[in-house]
C-alpha cells in the first residue's frame, strides 16, 4: 500500500485532500502534517512513498519543504496541492523537483489525471 504524507495548515483542507484521494480510487495509508517543519520531521522519522503538500503555510511553506528534503538527501516523490496554479509557480515547483502541481479547486478526476502518470 502506498503511504502518503498530506501537508496543509488547514485541517479542513487535509480532510478534503484525503477524501478526494479516496474518491479518486487511491486507498492509500495517510499521515498528516500541519506545515513544512512538521512534514520534514515526519519524513525524517519515517519516509513516506509520496508527499502531497500545500504551498503557502506558516512556519515553513511547501517549496521550502521540498528544497529542505532535497538538500537533506530525501528524494521522496513530491506533489503540490495549492490554491495558486500560476505558470510561474508551476515553473518554480518543477525546478525544485516536484512531480506535479494540482490547483485548488480540484476534483477526483483531476487527481487521477496527474497521479496516474506518476504511478505508471
Amino acid at each position: 500500500m502506498i503511504r502518503v504524507l498530506v501537508v496543509d495548515d488547514s485541517r479542513v483542507m487535509r480532510q478534503i485532500v484525503i477524501r478526494t484521494l479516496r474518491q479518486a480510487g487511491y486507498d492509500w495509508e495517510v499521515r498528516e502534517a500541519g506545515n513544512g517543519v512538521e512534514a520534514f520531521a515526519a519524513v525524517q522519522a519515517d519516509e513516506p512513498d509520496v508527499v502531497l503538500s500545500d504551498w503557502n503555510m506558516p512556519e515553513m511553506g511547501g517549496l521550502d519543504l521540498l528544497k529542505t528534503l532535497r538538500a537533506n538527501g530525501f528524494e521522496t516523490p513530491f506533489g503540490f496541492v495549492t490554491s495558486e496554479g500560476s505558470p510561474q509557480m508551476r515553473e518554480q515547483a518543477a525546478e525544485a523537483g516536484a512531480l506535479f502541481l494540482i490547483a485548488k479547486p480540484f476534483t477526483p478526476e483531476g487527481f487521477r489525471e496527474v497521479i496516474e502518470p506518476v504511478l505508471a
Binding site: 488547514s10 483542507m13 495549492t82 490554491s83 495558486e84 496554479g85 490547483a103 479547486p105
Partner: peptide, 13 residues
C-alpha cells in the same frame, strides 16, 4: 478561510 484562500489564489493566478 480556506474558501477565500482558494478564490483569492485563483484570482491571483
Amino acid at each position: 478561510g480556506e474558501i477565500a484562500n482558494v478564490v483569492g489564489g485563483n484570482v491571483k493566478a
